[in-house]
Nucleic acid binder design. Structure first.
Lengths: 337, 337
DNA sequence: ACGTTTCGAGAAAACGCTTTCTCAGGATTC
DNA sequence: GAATCCTGAGAAAGCGTTTTCTCGAAACGT
């Protein structure tokens, strides 16, 4: 086309001109190619330094066919869990010279496919974080997104590594813990219906129920936020449960706060557990008993899987499951007589 | 060069071939150029749909000279404040079809210049968030980063809008609030020395001190994390202050937690204030009195400024100051006799 | 001293697009 | 009916790199 030649920024041509060599030679020097005369190389480096030349990454990406960037799509950037994954991913990727592009679907599952596709095209790989889309759509989308790694979701597409947290196991351990403390009436304050991790918790509780016929276990509708927990106080109290398994730490904290306002003592009157062990969990009053998920590490791991995929186009299939670790703190205890 | 022609992905050439037209026509159709015969346009669209063609954004970026991406560099992605800014920015930018690339300097100020430069080259604009670098370096860097907007920092470079929170005013209001409650011995648990916002708070407290000669105000060394607050308990108690202005909500929460462990009652024995009004602040026990900063909105505003800069290469200089709003909750009160 | 390798650097193609330039063919005008 | 104006689409240039091709010159061996 030829809008205006000699755009504002200085390019490889300017350096070449100044050093009295060709584009090609400048490129070779900038990329540490040693088939260039040391004296000339130095002249090029001087010219580059003097002009403060920095190669244009877009041109580079086009020529090289890679962007040194990966994308992550999350359902909600306000959620501490996704923030932590993003952080782990970003730190780990930065270590290897990769940047990360974020996309937030705002829990709108119909946006996910579009965002994921766009991000993927701009990047060398993708991390799809707890997608809310249906299984069928995920199956269909997966091949076109490769290389990609899934978090808290899986697919039959064999090239897609899947990193999952064993919510089923975690919630069972929390429930067991309550039983050990003598609780026989337990309530589960559930998460969003679309959430796969909520379904996993449900499945875990089914197992628990089968193993403990004597324990009464009620399911309560809920959500994933503070507000959910805060608003659920009445329902929880009405249920008569003495132990409550909140969907996650946020919900547990909202509940804690609501109970405190009502003058209900924790854990004397009622025990509360969370899930995730977000940084704040240990600083609530009382500190929250929860199932610790190594979230940041999960983000790190996601990068390592993705890196493998990007490097060897054929990386080994992988299915990692992260086991939550029971973190017993002050929000659970035996019922005070 | 000619590595292998016909890379895996399908490109504009494939569509052109299938539709029996030239590259140019496909491009025109894809970009909604109406100088194309409707019948041919339809043929192209059909071919594109059938091949599931999506233009390669890198090629597009190179030709168009824009990436539809902006960068943000933050000192620490673990900090809720920066997370909120990122979120506000990301949501607002997405609304206009822009993506965001993140860079975390991990509080290493020497990394900032490099990260900022790299991000800027890959993007159409940059948000530099509370940079830790020195004033001189910031001055020097600013022109090369344009278009850029600064958060919680300013520069003499006129083209750089600067969005600042009036920490000075906020901390004064918090201090006044404590005085109104009858406190005459106050401590400030300071933040990181390199932080410009900490210096702003210090300046505010100098004014406060001048206006209230009768009030005793002590400065305590601190930091910006939970741990800082938690570890400062002894020092705070030793100071004899009955009102504590914590650097931010995180520090305040750590302090709250530490005091609770010691059996010190808040606010009966000591009043605590935070700063920022992070989402968790209202759910502590007692809920935290703090100065609410509209952080997410700040991120949004950053996008709007940056957008203006990107659109008109010559946007009006701008200096926005955000006023914190006093949020009085349960962590402050009169001293119990 | 001459043919053969080796070496180093420039020319040019390629990456995948957008857009200007150009030009054939049909519509319009006198 | 010929000169002129549109219209629409292909050819080609350009975005800023990297890399292959190519080729002159220097180095080598006999």
């Amino acid at each position: 086309m030829g809008r205006r030649t000699g755009s504002g920024r200085i390019g490889i041509a300017d350096v070449a001109l100044k050093a009295g060599v060709s584009h090609a030679t400048v490129s070779r020097v900038m990329n540490g190619n040693f088939t260039v005369d040391p004296a000339i190389a130095q002249r090029v480096r001087d010219a580059a330094a003097e002009l403060n030349y920095q190669p244009n990454p877009v041109g580079r990406s086009l020529a090289l066919g890679k962007t040194d960037t990966i994308g992550i799509v999350v359902p909600d950037l306000a959620n501490p869990t996704f923030q932590a994954i993003l952080r782990g991913l970003s730190m780990a990727a930065a270590q290897d010279g990769y940047r990360v592009l974020i996309a937030d679907s705002s829990e709108v599952s119909s946006e996910e496919a579009i965002l994921a596709g766009e991000a993927r095209r701009r990047c060398d790989g993708l991390v799809l974080c707890a997608p809310r889309m249906g299984d069928a759509e995920l199956e269909e989308l997966a091949p076109s997104l490769h290389p990609m790694v899934l978090i808290n979701r899986s697919t039959t597409e064999s090239r897609v590594p899947s990193l999952e947290v064993d919510y089923s196991q975690g919630v069972q351990e929390l429930a067991e813990h309550l039983v050990d403390l003598g609780h026989t009436s337990i309530a589960f304050l559930a998460g969003p219906a679309r959430s796969a991790s909520n379904r996993a918790r449900m499945a875990g509780l089914d197992k628990f129920r089968a193993a403990h016929p004597g324990v009464e276990l009620r399911m309560l509708e809920g959500g994933s936020s503070f507000e959910t927990g805060h608003e659920a106080v009445d329902e929880v109290l009405a249920s008569g449960a003495t132990g409550v398994l909140a969907f996650n730490d946020l919900v547990a904290m909202g509940l804690l706060s609501g109970l405190h306002e009502r003058g209900v003592r924790v854990p004397e009157d009622i025990s509360i557990t969370g899930f995730d062990d977000i940084p704040f969990a240990r600083y609530t009053t009382p500190p929250l008993t929860t199932a610790a998920v190594p979230i940041t590490e999960l983000g790190e791991h996601a990068w390592h899987s993705l890196r493998a995929l990007i490097r060897n186009a054929e990386a080994p299939e992988e299915e990692s499951t992260f086991q939550p670790r029971l973190e017993i703190r002050g929000s659970t205890g035996p019922l005070a007589k």
